[in-house]
Nucleic acid binder design. Structure first.
Lengths: 259, 259
DNA sequence: CGGCAAATTGACTCCACTCAAAGGAGGTGG
DNA sequence: CCACCTCCTTTGAGTGGAGTCAATTTGCCG
């Protein structure tokens, strides 16, 4: 059984003698994080504005909706979800944040966090004072452009997710997204743990919890993957990728054949 | 009959003796545009990187998908839509760009324009070399933060649109969005022209063209508004706003802060 | 072991899509 | 100026995908 993504957050934390004091230059995130492309000199200056807090336990909130915005947060290990409550009091998941992800880009313009952000498992983060960050960016063109790149990429990503997609497509896209996020951190791209519940996924993908169950069951019946509670094992990554790209729903025959 | 938004693009163009050479300080967009909050000195320096091209006619493309990214574009007058083709060759509308809007924020990270952008009516724009813009931003904190604010706001906006909304809610949100965009430019907030076709709206809101027709007909039957081809007259702005709020709980105030 | 939340499964319902056809509106050319 | 054509829009009828409601089942944790 390979590296399962979920467990390494805690390992990470206790493995390093210095705990929160892991230098950016030593960080396993490497160039997934903001200092990407900076000279080692600049990385050192960058580190001076990094504040590494204690890990958050599952269920602990990083931000609450309405909190004043001071710093953006880079996820080192673990997983977060951001969410709001709609007018009916229903929780609405806006996104998941995995290591390398940056939280708080949506809070800059109003200086208020527009959403709640909660840890879904034990998670470590780095806080970056936004004021320091921007003033530093003025003297580090690479940092400034990395910030722009990040925000731009997020805008592009959201344009895709917004698309008019079937339940099958949404699930496929979501699984591929997870797979790629794990693989670019050196984990298996076909076996991983979901940190979030089915209803988190459902809310994020704007569908009913039951539909998530049913689609996963259908994918499993078709031999694309196996789900055992939180553990997902993908057998046919390429077919899944095709599904996510292609937008063509699986033929019902395909399910029956294997079932 | 009040100021109808659609007609003033052409009027604007021929009204000014200098045509493309309208200075930022004289521009009717005022603080809807990027130089918002800059000192008059800085505005003058800002103007030096502004390139004002001839107006585009309806149907002319500003960018094509895959074009290399050089500059972002501020819409002065008119209306644009950005769109891509999905795997089945279907056009997928990603957004509409009205005066004060900025086009190209999604192209920064890949240095390629991810979408086509076409004028829906005669439209005037200002091109801003992104390289010049960012290097200038390093010496103008207000400009830098305005850039960050813009991108942040866009991310927040998209989180809302992504929501799990009924056809009625989507249409209501769309109409309110238009209304607010027009009113903050000094136009009527209850009577305006749609620059886009029903199927553009449908594609943008991820629904069938027929559904747009039906919902508008239903709103009209309910006395909320009147539609006559492209002209929309809203009678019950508040009820419409209520409808649009029904799905979303994000603090609207944060986002409405002038689009 | 019991209590509880998460997940699954089935039955039924409904909103929005598809298919189809009939009006307009506007543009073009004779 | 009218006839014609094309694209946009509207309206109707029928269908289906995903939601809702409800009943279990499963796993987790004290």
């Amino acid at each position: 059984m390979g590296n399962l993504a979920r467990s390494d957050n805690v390992q990470d934390y206790y493995r390093h003698p210095n705990r929160e004091q892991v230098a950016c230059s030593q960080c396993r995130l490497g160039n997934l994080c903001l200092p990407r492309g900076l000279s080692s000199e600049d990385v050192q200056r960058f580190e001076q504005i990094v504040h590494r807090s204690h890990p958050l336990q599952s269920g602990e909130h990083l931000f609450r909706q309405g909190d004043t915005f001071h710093s953006i947060v880079s996820v080192r290990t673990g997983c977060f979800k951001s969410y709001v409550f709609d007018c009916k009091g229903q929780e609405q998941v806006l996104g998941f944040h995995l290591p390398g992800g940056i939280i708080g880009l949506d809070a800059i313009h109003s200086r208020l966090h527009p959403a709640n952000v909660v840890a879904l498992e034990t998670s470590a983060v780095c806080h970056l004072s936004f004021e320091s960050l921007t003033s530093m960016a003025r003297h580090m063109p690479d940092l400034q452009s990395e910030l722009f790149r990040r925000m731009s990429r997020r805008i592009g990503e959201m344009q895709i997710i917004t698309g008019d997609l079937s339940a099958d497509e949404r699930i496929a896209i979501f699984l591929i997204w997870l797979s790629e996020r794990f693989s670019c951190r050196g984990h298996s791209n076909h076996e991983f743990m979901l940190a979030m519940t089915r209803s988190d996924v459902a809310s994020y993908l704007r569908m009913a919890t039951e539909t998530v169950s049913r689609v996963l069951a259908r994918f499993q019946a078709a031999g694309l993957l196996k789900v055992d509670r939180k553990r997902v094992t993908i057998f046919e990554l390429e077919k899944l990728r095709e599904l996510s790209r292609n937008g063509v729903a699986l033929e019902k025959a395909a399910y029956v054949a294997v079932a």
